[in-house]
Design a protein around this nucleic acid. Structure first.
Length: 477
RNA sequence: GCUCCGAUGGUGUAGUCCGGCCAAGCAUACCGGCCUUUCAAGCCGGCGACCCGGGUCCGAAUCCCGGUCGGAGCACCA
């Protein structure tokens, strides 16, 4: 059967400014854990533009803070991106580029654009807040360079020396005044071990790499606006061509833990089974529940990249996903909190219900129903029928309540508006559990032919459920 | 406090750069209808918005000024 093509207005991302031929863009997650739904936005937006204009999409793993790295992320992030349909053309890891950063720093130091500062953290913060230069700011470039080499060699401890980018000590925005470009860390880096203890800060390595990689366009959140200005000093000092920047507004996603460190803690404490726990919104977890990658793409394209902040809408996201999964979702009856009822003196029959009302080629669900059958219906429905009341067992027949049992109704007419239509399961149905993302479990009975259903099913009058794991994972209504 | 940004219905957006085709489009939610069969699907229909005040102009959601409200940044995180 032909599905009527639904008229959906095509949302289109605005054009990028200043495109000359191909574009080079990047994704720059920190490997502190697998990607979650929040990351999927920047990934898809960048991917869309590279696909529109042609060019390169570079995955740059930003691991210059050894204290916040999970080795698993290095392998999982590419998998997450692949599942989302994001086409990476090149992957680089910042921790393997230390020599490059050091070299750039030395040049900046020698040209007097950076200095090594030995003020303690408190003092550094205070003088900068007041817009006062510390004595180290005017030290000799050659001396700065030699101190920096000592930092590389690990001759200073954490906190006793930092390398600072000279900007404008009286800049109206205090955070832009002489910002820290390198600091010492005692931590052992999971990828490069403990041989290196001098690390660039994000603003330094990002600026250097954005240039070296030849980025033409950078789209990132508004939270990076002041970083863009900080980074512009490096471009200026080196006389580098500045990429085109665009900052999009922050989207807050309700009921989602965005902090990877919090998730990791929950995994360690066994609150979550792992990164793909149904209570989580990592790409892994959402994939497992049954969301389709097209949903992510469509949602983020429709959201666009306005400078305005917004709230993520699960209603809209789920509605889009429903459109993606419904055509392949076989229907099944799932009876929660089941009550077994006997139907007396019924007309023996074979129930015959399509797996999908609009796709008859998917076949029928057939069950032999005898003369005095016992079946299951939801307790809620059972309790709402008064003695003598009538209910329609969906796709079967009408029954009338008689005390605690039911009798077959001679009158089989009904109206979907006036008669209660209820899903049911035959006696040989199985126990079944559905895990919900709020951590609760719905227990009930599922019809035997569930064994023929893989992937996502629509449990009629209940919701969409992913059956892949042998038990149910609730997707959405 | 300082720096910067934004403001279209319940929610998400289109339109704003280059003022008229916008008495504002789409989606979702909601409401109603349809359907011998999903009181959470499907189809059809309906309700619902340009933050406020001035200005420019024949004409403003769109341009200018002021106000209000909201947000982001102000780390030896990214």
């Amino acid at each position: 059967m032909l599905q009527k093509e639904k008229k959906v207005q095509e949302h289109r991302l605005p054009d990028l400014a200043n495109v000359k031929g191909k574009v080079v863009m990047r994704l720059a997650p920190s490997p502190s854990g697998p990607l979650h739904i929040g990351h999927s936005r920047m990934a898809i937006l960048n991917d869309e533009y590279v696909k529109r204009y042609g060019g390169e999409l570079i995955l740059r793993l930003e691991d210059t803070n050894p204290a916040n790295i999970d080795p698993f992320a290095y392998e999982q992030i590419p998998r997450d991106l692949e599942w989302l349909g994001v086409g990476i053309t090149k992957t680089i890891i910042q921790s393997s580029r230390m020599e490059i950063y050091y070299k750039q720093a030395l040049t900046l130091l020698e040209n007097g654009h950076m200095y090594v500062c030995h003020c303690d953290q408190e003092k550094f913060r205070k003088t900068r807040q007041e817009g006062i230069a510390c004595p180290h700011r005017e030290s000799d470039p050659a001396e700065n360079a030699s101190r920096f080499r000592k930092m590389i060699d690990g001759e200073y401890n954490k906190g006793s020396a930092v390398a600072v980018m000279k900007t404008d000590i009286a800049h109206p925005n205090p955070s832009i005044r002489d910002w820290i470009a390198f600091r010492m860390s005692a931590a052992v880096h999971p990828m490069i071990g403990d041989k290196i203890h001098l690390y660039p800060t994000m603003n330094f390595s990002v600026a250097v790499d954005d240039h070296l990689l030849g980025l033409t366009h950078v789209i990132r959140g508004t939270d990076h606006i002041s970083n863009t200005e900080k980074q512009s000093y490096i471009f200026q000092y080196n006389n580098w061509k500045v990429p085109e920047y665009f900052h999009y507004g922050f989207i807050s996603i309700p009921d989602v833990i965005m902090k990877t460190s919090v998730i990791r803690k929950g995994i360690l404490s066994r609150e979550y089974r792992g990164w793909d726990d149904v209570k989580l919104h990592t790409i892994m977890a959402m994939k497992r529940r049954g969301y389709s990658p097209e949903t992510f793409r469509r949602y983020w394209i429709e959201s666009g990249l306005r400078a305005q902040n917004a709230t993520f809408s699960w209603e809209i996201f789920n509605s889009m996903n429903r459109e993606n999964v419904d055509k392949d979702a076989k229907r099944l009856f799932f009876v929660t909190d089941p009550v077994k009822i006997r139907i007396t003196d019924a007309k023996p029959t074979v129930s015959s219900i399509p797996f999908h009302p609009e796709r008859k080629e998917m076949g029928m669900r057939k069950y032999q129903i005898g003369k005095d059958p016992e079946i299951f219906i939801p307790r809620k429905e059972f309790e709402s029928v008064p003695d003598g009341g009538i209910i329609r067992l969906k796709d079967l027949y009408n029954v009338i309540r008689k005390g605690d049992s039911f009798s077959y109704s001679q009158d089989q007419t009904f109206s979907s508006r006036q008669t209660k239509i209820v899903q049911w399961c035959p006696e040989n149905s199985e126990d079944f559990e559905v895990l919900r993302p709020d951590g609760t479990v719905d227990r009930g009975r599922i019809e035997p032919l569930r064994s023929e259903v893989r992937g996502i099913s629509q449990f009629e009058r209940y919701g969409y459920v992913n059956l892949s794991d042998g038990y149910g994972l609730f997707l959405h209504n």
